[in-house]
Simulated scan of single mutants.
Amino acid sequence: MTAAGTTLVIGANGTTGSRTTARLVAAGHRVRAAGRRAAPVPGAEAVRFDWYDPATFGEAIAGTDRVYLVPPPGDSDPAAVMLPFLRQARDTGVHRAVLLSSSAVPEGGPAVGAVHRALPGLFDAWAVLRPSWFMQNFTGTHPHAHSIRDDGVILTATGTGRVGFVDADDIAAVAVHALTDDRAPRTDLVLTGPEALSHDDVATIVTEVTGRPVAHRHLPAGQLRDRLAATMPRDFAALLADLDLAIAGGAEDRTTDTVRRLTGRPPRSFRAVAERELTRSG
């Protein structure tokens, strides 16, 4: 590991940002925890940061030498706000950047794919994390988790397509490696769990773990898009519905050895995460 200076974690109260912050702090690294409300984070310096308010950029960057980047949620063109920030960060001393992207979004693809494409031209030390869909989508605050708790149902347009769902704790472990290892990965890293599961499989496991019946209900992509558009911009809802169709076509039916190779331990299974988080939450 490098003798890191200070790491700016953007989205430090989010699913992967909070876990990355906690791991960095536990390992003795200095962390500036950035969020829209500058909420206190144990062991870290809280700082306000808003992708849509460039006036917050300077204070957040000051004194940092690396950054963990969580894109603005629900934005179909995050490059418009992220690239000006990244140029400013580079010009003020940040030399390593680790970007959270998605296994469904290649370099140069839609949304954060444009930031992925630009990153190697901005920093010599960099990595792009491309995790599969989060296991925490079924246990936390994601619409799937609310639907499971409220209605006992998972609504998708994925059909029987399978996904290598990944634990957010495993994503954070890889993020810390990419931020602090002596040599930055300088590549994109596709992260999955140990097995590919359909949403029917997920519903079965959640039912077995919680003792409450959960079913997977398939929706046409257009109907799913319309439901999502009630809570987010319509163009982003359309993107998510298209990603479900890609899953139905087999685009996410894969597993990788990246978590084991970079952390030295196997990725956690969905059943293990469900037992850890759903039995705890009741």
Results as ranks from 00 to 15, higher is better:
residue 89 A to V: 03
residue 79 A to G: 11
residue 75 D to I: 06
residue 86 L to V: 10
residue 72 P to I: 07
residue 73 P to Q: 11
residue 88 Q to V: 08
residue 98 V to A: 06
residue 95 H to V: 15
residue 91 D to C: 08
residue 84 P to Q: 07
residue 68 Y to S: 08
residue 75 D to T: 09
residue 94 V to K: 00
residue 82 M to T: 11
residue 94 V to Y: 00
residue 85 F to R: 09
residue 79 A to V: 08
residue 70 V to F: 05
residue 73 P to M: 07
residue 95 H to N: 12
residue 88 Q to H: 12
residue 89 A to S: 04
residue 74 G to H: 02
residue 95 H to Y: 08
residue 79 A to D: 14
residue 76 S to N: 13
residue 89 A to T: 02
residue 89 A to Y: 01
residue 94 V to H: 01
residue 91 D to H: 08
residue 85 F to T: 09
residue 91 D to R: 07
residue 84 P to W: 06
residue 74 G to I: 06
residue 70 V to D: 09
residue 77 D to P: 06
residue 71 P to F: 00
residue 93 G to D: 01
residue 68 Y to K: 11
residue 82 M to R: 02
residue 92 T to R: 10
residue 76 S to E: 14
residue 72 P to E: 02
residue 78 P to W: 05
residue 89 A to W: 02
residue 81 V to C: 07
residue 72 P to G: 03
residue 98 V to F: 02
residue 93 G to F: 01
residue 83 L to W: 03
residue 87 R to W: 09
residue 88 Q to P: 03
residue 77 D to M: 13
residue 88 Q to K: 12
residue 91 D to A: 15
residue 75 D to N: 14
residue 85 F to Y: 14
residue 97 A to M: 10
residue 69 L to M: 07
residue 98 V to K: 06
residue 95 H to S: 15
residue 68 Y to H: 13
residue 82 M to L: 10
residue 76 S to R: 14
residue 84 P to N: 04
residue 83 L to S: 05
residue 95 H to L: 11
residue 93 G to A: 01
residue 92 T to N: 07
residue 77 D to E: 15
residue 69 L to F: 00
residue 95 H to C: 12
residue 77 D to C: 14
residue 94 V to G: 00
residue 74 G to C: 04
residue 96 R to S: 01
residue 94 V to T: 05
residue 80 A to T: 15
residue 87 R to L: 14
residue 78 P to E: 10
residue 86 L to K: 08
residue 86 L to T: 13
residue 86 L to D: 12
residue 78 P to D: 11
residue 84 P to R: 04
residue 78 P to F: 06
residue 88 Q to M: 12
residue 73 P to T: 13
residue 83 L to I: 13
residue 91 D to V: 09
residue 91 D to N: 11
residue 94 V to R: 00
residue 69 L to A: 04
residue 68 Y to L: 15
residue 84 P to D: 09
residue 75 D to S: 09
residue 72 P to F: 03
residue 73 P to R: 11
residue 82 M to D: 08
residue 85 F to P: 06
residue 81 V to I: 06
residue 94 V to F: 01
residue 90 R to V: 11
residue 92 T to H: 10
residue 72 P to C: 06
residue 73 P to L: 12
residue 85 F to W: 14
residue 72 P to L: 04
residue 95 H to G: 14
residue 82 M to K: 05
residue 82 M to P: 04
residue 96 R to T: 01
residue 85 F to G: 08
residue 79 A to N: 04
